[in-house]
Amino acid sequence: MQELHTFEIKPKKAFAFNFKELVDYSELLYFFAWRDIKVKYKQTVLGFLWAVLQPLLLMLIFTFFIGRAMQVSSDGMDYAVFAYSGLVLWLVFSSGVTNAANSMVTNAAIIKKIYFPRLIIPVSAVVVALFDFIMAFVIFIVILLIFATPINLSLIYWWPLALLLTIVGTIGPGCLLAALNIKYRDFRYVVPFLIQALLFLTPVIYPVSSISQVWLRYVVALNPMYAAISVFRLPLSTVAPDWTLLVISLSSGVLFFIIGLAYFRRTENYFADIA
């Protein structure tokens, strides 16, 4: 006789994480991400080009108004390269957090009718943002070639690490906001404002060295994306990184990740009752 799959349903403990189950459902994660990517670009004339146009246009705007007009320094790179290298990761964060924050509410109908590990939903929202990153990254390479930017190839291993930091830094706040949003719909209005404010509080379009007050640098470094973007620029930059700031940002990212997942886990069981 075949081995039976047994299960037990009982009142949930708040902090037990079932990783095996997440792995079992990895295909569903893929299908949710695939659905959102398909739907996002259906009935658009330019299709996947939109993934590239957004960082490109923002780069042009910042290059002219901040790089040229305001003469902001750029750690020894062309300002355009500097801005794009920041934007390409920043957009993963901003669209990842926005998508994830709304994801539980948009999928409420499914949540109420079928069971799967709820974490799949905000995580798949972040995967959609990563898909756009791949397209934008290809353009990044083209830009590097156009500007003939010198790359320190021995430091290129920082790139995947930067991407990992971005994912961790996006999933944390994304899950936190997704859980809060389903309970308090106020967060629908908080998120866009938060993302916009954070763009200016992150050294995306200016280097941290351009902040003259040292204490303010520490504040800016609380943003998890600071570490990701700085690390991403390491192979291109001529300026040595500030390790203290990086450690602050990294710790903040990990902390947000843990808080986000824990809070999500704690409220997950009751999503179907309050959605």
């Binding site: 039976l4 799959h5 047994t6 299960f7 037990e8 349903i9 009982k10 009142p11 949930k12 659905r35 398909k38 739907v39 259906k42 009935q43 109908a109 499914i110 949540i111 109420k112 009718k113 079928i114 069971y115 069981n269 009751y270 179907a272 009752d273």
Partner: peptide, 29 residues
């Protein structure tokens, strides 16, 4: 979909539920 407040259920076998037809159907796909 929602946990019980008290008590438990033990099941032997794979379980699937159909509380609605077409859960997750997307009109654009």
């Amino acid at each position: 979909i929602t946990p019980p407040t008290q008590g438990r259920i033990i099941g032997r076998g794979r379980i699937a539920s159909l509380l609605e037809v077409g859960t997750g159907f997307h009109p654009e796909l």
